[in-house]
Amino acid sequence: MSATTTTSGTPVAAGTAVPTATAFAAARRRERRMLAVLALLALAAVAAFAFIGIKGNWEFALAIRFRKIATMAVVGVAIAWSSVLFQTVTGNRILTPSIMGFDQLFVLIQTVIVFLFGALALATADPRLLFSGQVAAMVGFSTLLHRWLFGRRGRDLYVMVLAGVIFGTLFGSLANLAARLINPNDFVVLQDSLFASLNQVDAGLLGFSALLIGAMAAWTLRLRHRLDVVALGRDHAINLGVDHAAVVNRALVIVAVLVSVATALVGPITFLGLLVANLARQLVGTFRHGVLLPAAALIAVITLVGGQLILERVFTMDTALTVIVNFVGGVYFIALLIRESRR
């Protein structure tokens, strides 16, 4: 897309006075059409992933594939929505929650476990315990960070983001240090666990995660109109009667839970959020979260399922999903930076 291309607004010739009711109805139709297209694409990706190249026992193969699809759907929604929410409350399209050090904290926790108890502990620990511990630590960290910085009536979101970046670096350095101190065999096990992977997801954990993310999604949807207003910035939001601080606080709690669950479930997928949130904004061309959120979720599912499909069928599992997603996401990120700087 070139720099001059505008989003999908119907060009209205100057001088024609369209009533607002008509104009908005047309916009809603356009948004619905785009969502329908995305839903079809997502369905096609899911169908392709489920049925291409099945050999032997269908029942067995489908059970495994559908569990993977369910994992990708849960993770996709979590990452997509956390990124959209984070961008809305920070008013910045280039930030994603991963900048707040969530990924690094995950890496640190895994590394410290291996460092203290050995690789065997990581491999044999009760996955539920590990999962709950990780989610609790990550939500706890973000809440603390946020309380600490917002408690003093400092309403500067950027200070919080900056602190998040610094903590992220700190966690990353600590994890690096610990990784250097453990023995090489343990390190190999550790490194494997740090790549996002859909292969060892426990069914019970998946159900629990789906429940948590479903609850957060419902909460987000209830906030969707207020989020539209918060996206205009603090002053406009307050003028329009939205308790800006309260909505931002809620959104950040939701973001913390979503990111923590997704990361604890499959590992860090850095660029997915950025890719998905911005593609959604570009494709639906609206600020309305009632449309933006479902669109972002569908794009996330298309990306993850499509990426995994390519991974399994084209690269025959020779690489990791994160490698593909981060490659595509990284290229997109650079394109986005160049485009924004040309504005």
């Binding site: 989003t7 104009a23 908005f24 969707r224 539209d228 207003v229 329009l240």
Partner: peptide
């Protein structure tokens, strides 16, 4: 921070009365 049309911006003025 958000890309809006004039109509969308003006319509935001109704938010305090309609909740969206």
């Amino acid at each position: 921070p958000v890309r809006l049309t004039v109509r969308e911006l003006v319509a935001f003025g109704r938010f305090p009365h309609t909740g969206g």
